[in-house]
Design a protein around this nucleic acid. Structure first.
Lengths: 195, 195
DNA sequence: GTCTATATAGGGATAGAC
DNA sequence: GTCTATCCCTATATAGAC
């Protein structure tokens, strides 16, 4: 190994670009994310962008979605599946709260899902939500819920998070998201409404 | 009054155009709704469109939003506020299920809320959700919920509907929406979890 | 690898004939 | 009122200099 690879590796630099791309797609959606917005956000000219992403905007979006999927796989889905010490679900809520900045940022996958881009990126969009629900349902089963109930509650939680993001952005108020997250955390505590 | 105004009135014809515009904005969002998509959907040339909506696409979106607001005001908010015979909430769920075709159509206001268009149409977007929540909270208070609980449950229901629409479209599966609606209907039945 | 043209298509919007 | 033709701008994408 050479002495000090201080200057960023190729992959790290690419990661930086993808992070900036994400914010453009998040704020403007797929069709709204113009190359001029992208050059502005990344500080790169079109030439550089097409050098990094030869297939253009489509490829940029694909890699943004893949990056999101990777992050959630590491920070959310894997902890849910391992559920080390029964803390998987709590870790999920923590990670989600950080990722969406308590409702200050919307979900790119959700934005894509609502627009015409869904058809083009259907597999990634669907995969994201199904992976999330499946991992969460598994963790809920370990908590003692029946298979059917775990599935239903997992769906309600993912759905609640997405709805909270819509309302938080519509009203420009993170309070909606915070309250929803608190309530959703509560729904996994009480094992059933048995009295 | 003249004998038979069989041919459509001006307003009715305008209503038809707005209905078709709505479907374009619903499917493609504000930025994605190009004039060529709009001419195709309405069957009108640009000249006619600019005659009907002199301020162009912006005005089209404004009138679409106003039309939605009018529909919900009549079919959802007013029944919730009147709550004739305590059926206001049930009528809301029925109307919502019809309007969104059991999850087959997404919410235009939700689509706008997630995109950059929110800033331009902030007042209409915010107004839609706040009116809905306020009317629903009022109906819930009449059902015996405390002011705080009614407000919270109203928020959870509106949020749940929006989240269900996101997931239904993401997974291309109306089942998510139907299940969510059923569950949400249930949350207004049990007055409190008092055992 | 990054930039500055440039190419080509489509965007929103307008003018004017009918 | 509706169309066609046209305006000007911005879109994505490419070429080629450095």
């Amino acid at each position: 190994m050479p002495a000090k690879p201080r200057p960023k590796t190729k992959d790290a630099a690419r990661g930086d670009v993808i992070a900036k791309l994400s914010e453009v797609f998040r704020a403007h959606g797929y069709e709204g994310a113009s190359l001029s917005l992208i050059t502005e956000a990344t500080g790169l000219g079109k030439g550089s962008l097409y050098n990094l992403f030869p297939r253009g905007k489509e490829q940029m979006a694909e890699e943004v979605l893949a990056h999101i999927d990777g992050w959630f796989e590491r920070e959310v889905f894997a902890p849910l599946r391992d559920d080390s010490g029964g803390e998987g679900i709590a870790r999920m809520f923590d990670a989600v709260d950080r990722y969406f900045e308590s409702g200050g940022r919307v979900c790119i996958v959700g934005v894509f899902a609502l627009g015409a881009a869904r058809d083009h990126f259907a597999k990634a969009v669907r995969g994201y939500f199904t992976a999330w629900e499946a991992a969460l349902a598994l963790a809920l089963r370990r908590r003692g819920f029946s298979a059917a109930e775990a599935k239903q509650r997992a769906e309600d939680i993912v759905l609640g998070i997405q709805g909270a993001l819509v309302l938080a952005r519509a009203n420009d108020d993170r309070g909606v998201f915070r309250r929803a997250m608190k309530r959703l955390r509560g729904t996994v505590a009480r094992q059933a409404d048995a009295c």
